[in-house]
């Protein structure tokens, strides 16, 4: 537990976070300003948090903010760190992390595709990843209505005679 407290104190001193908490055993959540994320990531990588497990995004629609979450893991200390930063929802821009963690490429593409966050410095972030042809709002935003999109794009089966006759057609024995 000592190393955990040391780590917490060191991070507190170095990153000057807005908020810090330990949501679970050997996990640290750090909330920082969006413009310090890049520095924080390079500091943490140098501290031994060499594995970027995921980059993801949370849509806080009432506050009109996106929260980017970077989860890092240290194999030497066995500690998870969540690095969180809130950015403006109407103009979501973030500096890329691919120069620190090259593997962030696919997470950034995913976040761009599903939330529309722009990553400056990463030209490939706008490439389609899962959705091959997409013509609507980014689908994981809370103001996107999947039901309406599904109804307009994918015709459903009418509940009625057609279905019954299809089964009845070869029910002969």
């Amino acid at each position: 537990m000592n190393s955990m407290n040391n780590t917490i104190n060191e991070i507190k001193a170095a990153l000057k976070p807005l908020k810090m908490e330990t949501p679970a055993f050997r996990q640290i959540a750090v909330v920082v300003k969006p413009d310090t994320v890049h520095n924080a990531l390079s500091y943490l990588k140098q501290k031994g948090f060499t594995q970027l497990s995921i980059v993801t995004c949370v849509d806080w629609i009432k506050e009109s903010e996106f929260e980017l979450v970077y989860i890092l893991f240290s194999w030497t200390e066995g500690i998870h760190i969540q690095l969180r930063a809130r950015i403006d929802r109407d103009k979501p821009v973030m500096v890329t992390a691919t120069d620190i963690f090259p593997g962030a490429q696919y997470y950034e593409r995913e976040v761009h595709e599903f939330f529309g966050v722009e990553f400056t410095g990463n030209e490939d972030a706008a490439k389609p990843l899962f959705l091959e042809i997409w013509d609507d709002l980014p689908p994981l935003r809370k103001d996107f209505d999947p039901q309406a999109y599904s109804d307009s794009k994918f015709p459903m089966r009418e509940r009625g005679n057609e279905f019954v006759s299809e089964i009845g057609g070869h029910d002969d024995e």
Partner: peptide, 15 residues
């Protein structure tokens, strides 16, 4: 047949 539990998904087809 009808989309199953993914009936309202933006990514999966209905029928």
């Amino acid at each position: 047949i009808n989309g199953g539990i993914y009936y309202d998904s933006y990514a999966t087809i209905g029928r």
